[in-house]
Design a binder for these strands. Structure first.
Lengths: 128, 128
DNA sequence: TAACATCTATTACCATTGTAGGTGGACTGG
DNA sequence: CCAGTCCACCTACAATGGTAATAGATGTTA
Protein backbone atom coordinates (compact mmCIF):
# COMPACT_ATOMS: atom_id res chain seq x y z
CA UNK A 1 0.00 0.00 0.00
CA UNK A 2 1.59 3.23 -1.07
CA UNK A 3 -1.26 5.09 0.50
CA UNK A 4 -2.58 3.22 3.50
CA UNK A 5 -6.17 3.74 4.48
CA UNK A 6 -6.45 5.89 7.57
CA UNK A 7 -9.34 5.80 9.99
CA UNK A 8 -10.82 8.84 11.63
CA UNK A 9 -8.70 8.64 14.77
CA UNK A 10 -5.60 7.94 12.74
CA UNK A 11 -6.40 10.98 10.65
CA UNK A 12 -6.70 13.12 13.74
CA UNK A 13 -3.31 11.95 14.90
CA UNK A 14 -1.74 12.66 11.54
CA UNK A 15 -3.44 16.01 11.65
CA UNK A 16 -1.59 16.90 14.81
CA UNK A 17 1.69 16.18 13.05
CA UNK A 18 0.67 18.04 9.92
CA UNK A 19 -0.46 21.05 11.89
CA UNK A 20 2.17 21.25 14.61
CA UNK A 21 5.09 19.41 13.12
CA UNK A 22 7.02 16.51 14.65
CA UNK A 23 5.65 15.74 18.07
CA UNK A 24 5.80 13.38 21.00
CA UNK A 25 2.87 11.17 21.88
CA UNK A 26 1.92 13.35 24.82
CA UNK A 27 1.78 16.37 22.56
CA UNK A 28 -0.39 14.58 20.06
CA UNK A 29 -2.72 13.46 22.79
CA UNK A 30 -3.07 16.99 24.05
CA UNK A 31 -4.27 18.26 20.71
CA UNK A 32 -7.54 16.45 21.42
CA UNK A 33 -10.22 18.45 23.20
CA UNK A 34 -10.15 17.65 26.93
CA UNK A 35 -13.74 16.49 26.66
CA UNK A 36 -13.50 12.96 25.31
CA UNK A 37 -9.74 12.95 24.95
CA UNK A 38 -8.45 9.41 24.40
CA UNK A 39 -6.10 7.90 26.97
CA UNK A 40 -2.38 8.36 26.47
CA UNK A 41 -1.91 4.68 25.68
CA UNK A 42 -4.72 4.79 23.16
CA UNK A 43 -2.92 7.45 21.22
CA UNK A 44 0.28 5.51 21.66
CA UNK A 45 -1.25 2.38 20.18
CA UNK A 46 -2.53 4.25 17.17
CA UNK A 47 0.81 5.92 16.66
CA UNK A 48 2.53 2.54 16.70
CA UNK A 49 0.06 1.24 14.15
CA UNK A 50 0.62 4.26 11.97
CA UNK A 51 4.31 3.51 12.22
CA UNK A 52 3.73 -0.03 10.95
CA UNK A 53 1.67 1.40 8.10
CA UNK A 54 4.57 3.72 7.38
CA UNK A 55 2.39 6.78 7.77
CA UNK A 56 4.90 8.23 10.22
CA UNK A 57 8.24 7.41 11.79
CA UNK A 58 10.40 8.03 14.82
CA UNK A 59 12.65 10.94 14.13
CA UNK A 60 14.74 11.30 17.28
CA UNK A 61 14.42 11.32 21.03
CA UNK A 62 14.05 14.09 23.55
CA UNK A 63 14.66 12.76 27.02
CA UNK A 64 13.23 9.29 26.81
CA UNK A 65 10.36 10.35 24.57
CA UNK A 66 10.28 9.63 20.86
CA UNK A 67 9.46 12.41 18.46
CA UNK A 68 7.39 11.33 15.45
CA UNK A 69 7.20 12.89 12.03
CA UNK A 70 4.69 12.27 9.24
CA UNK A 71 5.71 10.27 6.17
CA UNK A 72 2.51 10.92 4.29
CA UNK A 73 1.41 14.36 3.19
CA UNK A 74 -1.93 15.76 4.17
CA UNK A 75 -2.71 16.13 0.51
CA UNK A 76 -2.03 12.51 -0.32
CA UNK A 77 -4.13 11.35 2.60
CA UNK A 78 -6.99 13.60 1.59
CA UNK A 79 -6.80 12.36 -1.97
CA UNK A 80 -7.15 8.83 -0.72
CA UNK A 81 -10.06 9.86 1.46
CA UNK A 82 -11.88 11.51 -1.39
CA UNK A 83 -11.37 8.50 -3.61
CA UNK A 84 -12.85 6.14 -1.05
CA UNK A 85 -15.71 8.51 -0.49
CA UNK A 86 -16.53 8.68 -4.17
CA UNK A 87 -16.32 4.90 -4.29
CA UNK A 88 -19.21 4.85 -1.85
CA UNK A 89 -21.28 6.76 -4.36
CA UNK A 90 -20.25 4.50 -7.18
CA UNK A 91 -18.00 7.29 -8.43
CA UNK A 92 -20.95 9.40 -9.56
CA UNK A 93 -20.38 13.01 -8.59
CA UNK A 94 -23.87 14.30 -9.17
CA UNK A 95 -25.53 12.95 -6.02
CA UNK A 96 -22.52 14.00 -3.99
CA UNK A 97 -22.76 17.58 -5.09
CA UNK A 98 -26.50 17.66 -4.69
CA UNK A 99 -26.13 16.35 -1.18
CA UNK A 100 -23.47 18.85 -0.29
CA UNK A 101 -25.54 21.72 -1.54
CA UNK A 102 -28.84 20.67 -0.04
CA UNK A 103 -27.23 20.09 3.31
CA UNK A 104 -26.08 23.67 3.10
CA UNK A 105 -22.48 22.61 3.27
CA UNK A 106 -21.67 24.29 0.02
CA UNK A 107 -21.94 28.04 -0.28
CA UNK A 108 -21.95 30.12 -3.43
CA UNK A 109 -18.44 31.22 -2.55
CA UNK A 110 -17.34 27.58 -2.55
CA UNK A 111 -18.87 27.13 -5.96
CA UNK A 112 -17.29 30.31 -7.26
CA UNK A 113 -13.92 29.16 -5.98
CA UNK A 114 -14.46 25.83 -7.64
CA UNK A 115 -15.21 27.53 -10.91
CA UNK A 116 -12.10 29.63 -10.75
CA UNK A 117 -9.96 26.62 -9.92
CA UNK A 118 -11.46 24.72 -12.84
CA UNK A 119 -10.75 27.57 -15.23
CA UNK A 120 -7.17 27.85 -14.02
CA UNK A 121 -6.66 24.16 -14.43
CA UNK A 122 -7.94 23.97 -17.98
CA UNK A 123 -5.87 27.02 -18.87
CA UNK A 124 -2.79 25.35 -17.47
CA UNK A 125 -3.48 22.31 -19.60
CA UNK A 126 -3.82 24.28 -22.82
CA UNK A 127 -0.89 26.64 -22.25
CA UNK A 128 1.79 24.80 -20.36
CA UNK B 1 -29.33 5.28 15.93
CA UNK B 2 -31.97 6.77 13.71
CA UNK B 3 -29.50 6.70 10.86
CA UNK B 4 -27.16 3.75 11.25
CA UNK B 5 -23.75 4.03 9.71
CA UNK B 6 -23.49 1.91 6.60
CA UNK B 7 -20.28 0.44 5.24
CA UNK B 8 -19.45 0.24 1.59
CA UNK B 9 -20.80 -3.25 1.08
CA UNK B 10 -23.89 -2.44 3.05
CA UNK B 11 -24.39 0.60 0.86
CA UNK B 12 -24.11 -1.52 -2.25
CA UNK B 13 -26.77 -3.84 -0.94
CA UNK B 14 -29.07 -0.97 -0.07
CA UNK B 15 -28.37 0.40 -3.50
CA UNK B 16 -29.78 -2.71 -5.08
CA UNK B 17 -33.01 -2.19 -3.15
CA UNK B 18 -33.14 1.50 -3.94
CA UNK B 19 -32.52 0.91 -7.61
CA UNK B 20 -34.56 -2.21 -8.27
CA UNK B 21 -37.10 -2.16 -5.47
CA UNK B 22 -37.83 -4.92 -2.97
CA UNK B 23 -35.69 -7.94 -3.77
CA UNK B 24 -34.65 -11.38 -2.62
CA UNK B 25 -31.11 -12.07 -1.51
CA UNK B 26 -30.30 -13.85 -4.74
CA UNK B 27 -31.40 -10.82 -6.71
CA UNK B 28 -29.31 -8.50 -4.61
CA UNK B 29 -26.30 -10.73 -5.03
CA UNK B 30 -26.71 -10.71 -8.76
CA UNK B 31 -26.55 -6.95 -8.97
CA UNK B 32 -22.84 -7.30 -8.21
CA UNK B 33 -20.52 -7.61 -11.19
CA UNK B 34 -19.67 -11.28 -11.80
CA UNK B 35 -16.03 -10.43 -11.33
CA UNK B 36 -15.53 -10.30 -7.58
CA UNK B 37 -19.13 -10.99 -6.72
CA UNK B 38 -19.49 -11.93 -3.04
CA UNK B 39 -20.84 -15.35 -2.15
CA UNK B 40 -24.55 -15.72 -1.66
CA UNK B 41 -24.13 -16.27 2.06
CA UNK B 42 -21.95 -13.20 2.35
CA UNK B 43 -24.74 -11.08 0.98
CA UNK B 44 -27.12 -12.96 3.20
CA UNK B 45 -25.08 -12.13 6.29
CA UNK B 46 -24.94 -8.46 5.43
CA UNK B 47 -28.66 -8.37 4.75
CA UNK B 48 -29.33 -9.90 8.14
CA UNK B 49 -27.10 -7.30 9.76
CA UNK B 50 -28.88 -4.54 7.90
CA UNK B 51 -32.10 -5.97 9.22
CA UNK B 52 -30.80 -5.74 12.78
CA UNK B 53 -29.78 -2.14 12.12
CA UNK B 54 -33.31 -1.55 10.83
CA UNK B 55 -32.01 -0.39 7.47
CA UNK B 56 -34.33 -2.86 5.76
CA UNK B 57 -36.98 -5.43 6.63
CA UNK B 58 -38.63 -8.57 5.39
CA UNK B 59 -41.69 -7.65 3.44
CA UNK B 60 -43.20 -10.96 2.38
CA UNK B 61 -42.23 -14.30 0.94
CA UNK B 62 -42.19 -15.62 -2.58
CA UNK B 63 -41.79 -19.35 -2.54
CA UNK B 64 -39.53 -19.85 0.41
CA UNK B 65 -37.51 -16.75 -0.28
CA UNK B 66 -37.89 -13.57 1.71
CA UNK B 67 -38.28 -10.31 -0.11
CA UNK B 68 -36.59 -7.36 1.55
CA UNK B 69 -37.47 -3.71 1.31
CA UNK B 70 -35.44 -0.68 2.40
CA UNK B 71 -36.41 1.24 5.52
CA UNK B 72 -33.92 4.01 4.96
CA UNK B 73 -34.06 6.34 1.99
CA UNK B 74 -31.11 6.74 -0.30
CA UNK B 75 -31.16 10.41 0.51
CA UNK B 76 -30.95 9.91 4.23
CA UNK B 77 -28.11 7.44 3.86
CA UNK B 78 -26.21 9.76 1.59
CA UNK B 79 -26.71 12.63 3.99
CA UNK B 80 -25.18 10.57 6.73
CA UNK B 81 -22.31 9.61 4.48
CA UNK B 82 -21.57 13.19 3.55
CA UNK B 83 -21.66 14.26 7.17
CA UNK B 84 -19.18 11.62 8.21
CA UNK B 85 -16.98 12.50 5.31
CA UNK B 86 -16.96 16.17 6.16
CA UNK B 87 -16.20 15.23 9.75
CA UNK B 88 -12.99 13.70 8.49
CA UNK B 89 -12.01 17.06 7.09
CA UNK B 90 -12.99 18.83 10.25
CA UNK B 91 -16.04 20.16 8.46
CA UNK B 92 -14.05 22.49 6.23
CA UNK B 93 -15.36 22.37 2.66
CA UNK B 94 -12.51 24.14 0.96
CA UNK B 95 -9.96 21.30 0.90
CA UNK B 96 -12.70 18.90 -0.10
CA UNK B 97 -13.65 20.88 -3.16
CA UNK B 98 -10.06 21.52 -4.10
CA UNK B 99 -9.36 17.83 -3.85
CA UNK B 100 -12.37 16.90 -5.93
CA UNK B 101 -11.45 19.30 -8.66
CA UNK B 102 -7.76 18.54 -8.79
CA UNK B 103 -8.45 14.85 -8.94
CA UNK B 104 -10.52 15.64 -11.99
CA UNK B 105 -13.59 14.24 -10.34
CA UNK B 106 -15.46 17.46 -10.77
CA UNK B 107 -16.29 18.70 -14.26
CA UNK B 108 -17.50 22.11 -15.29
CA UNK B 109 -20.91 20.59 -15.87
CA UNK B 110 -20.96 19.44 -12.26
CA UNK B 111 -20.10 22.94 -11.14
CA UNK B 112 -22.70 24.48 -13.42
CA UNK B 113 -25.32 22.12 -12.05
CA UNK B 114 -24.25 23.02 -8.56
CA UNK B 115 -24.68 26.68 -9.35
CA UNK B 116 -28.13 26.19 -10.75
CA UNK B 117 -29.17 24.15 -7.75
CA UNK B 118 -27.87 26.83 -5.42
CA UNK B 119 -29.79 29.52 -7.25
CA UNK B 120 -32.97 27.50 -7.20
CA UNK B 121 -32.61 26.85 -3.52
CA UNK B 122 -32.14 30.46 -2.56
CA UNK B 123 -35.04 31.44 -4.79
CA UNK B 124 -37.24 28.85 -3.11
CA UNK B 125 -36.32 30.32 0.24
CA UNK B 126 -37.21 33.86 -0.76
CA UNK B 127 -40.44 33.08 -2.61
CA UNK B 128 -42.11 30.13 -1.02
C1' DT C 1 -42.59 -39.39 -4.83
C1' DA C 2 -37.74 -39.14 -5.11
C1' DA C 3 -34.00 -36.35 -6.54
C1' DC C 4 -32.48 -31.91 -7.09
C1' DA C 5 -32.17 -27.09 -6.42
C1' DT C 6 -32.74 -23.26 -3.49
C1' DC C 7 -33.24 -20.83 0.56
C1' DT C 8 -32.89 -20.08 5.65
C1' DA C 9 -30.58 -20.15 9.82
C1' DT C 10 -26.58 -20.77 12.48
C1' DT C 11 -21.87 -20.63 13.30
C1' DA C 12 -17.07 -19.45 12.58
C1' DC C 13 -12.98 -16.90 11.57
C1' DC C 14 -9.99 -13.12 10.51
C1' DA C 15 -8.68 -8.18 10.12
C1' DT C 16 -9.28 -3.62 11.65
C1' DT C 17 -10.31 -0.06 14.95
C1' DG C 18 -10.87 1.94 19.33
C1' DT C 19 -9.98 1.34 23.97
C1' DA C 20 -6.86 0.85 27.68
C1' DG C 21 -4.26 -1.66 31.69
C1' DG C 22 0.09 -3.30 33.54
C1' DT C 23 5.06 -3.64 34.07
C1' DG C 24 9.38 -2.04 34.00
C1' DG C 25 12.88 1.31 32.48
C1' DA C 26 14.53 6.31 32.19
C1' DC C 27 14.79 10.98 33.94
C1' DT C 28 14.44 14.71 37.24
C1' DG C 29 13.93 17.46 41.44
C1' DG C 30 15.22 17.68 45.93
C1' DC D 1 20.80 8.96 45.56
C1' DC D 2 16.00 7.88 45.66
C1' DA D 3 11.09 8.95 45.07
C1' DG D 4 7.99 10.29 41.98
C1' DT D 5 6.77 11.02 37.31
C1' DC D 6 6.82 10.05 32.59
C1' DC D 7 7.41 7.02 28.91
C1' DA D 8 7.95 2.65 26.20
C1' DC D 9 6.44 -1.70 25.28
C1' DC D 10 3.43 -5.57 25.56
C1' DT D 11 -0.91 -7.55 26.01
C1' DA D 12 -5.76 -7.75 25.95
C1' DC D 13 -10.42 -7.23 24.57
C1' DA D 14 -14.82 -5.85 22.38
C1' DA D 15 -17.21 -4.18 18.24
C1' DT D 16 -17.58 -4.07 13.44
C1' DG D 17 -17.22 -5.70 8.78
C1' DG D 18 -16.13 -9.02 5.28
C1' DT D 19 -15.93 -13.67 4.15
C1' DA D 20 -18.06 -17.99 3.93
C1' DA D 21 -19.21 -23.11 5.22
C1' DT D 22 -22.52 -26.18 6.90
C1' DA D 23 -26.91 -28.12 8.06
C1' DG D 24 -31.48 -28.44 7.71
C1' DA D 25 -36.05 -26.83 5.68
C1' DT D 26 -38.70 -26.05 1.64
C1' DG D 27 -40.03 -25.91 -2.86
C1' DT D 28 -39.74 -27.80 -7.88
C1' DT D 29 -39.75 -31.23 -11.30
C1' DA D 30 -39.22 -35.40 -13.81
Amino acid sequence: MRLPKLSKLELQIMDALWSFGPSAIREIQETFPQKGRPAYTTVQTMVYRLEIKKALRRMHKIGNAHIFEPLISRDAAQRRLVDDFLGMFGGRMQPVMAQLIEAGNLTSKDVADAEKLLRDLSKRKKEP
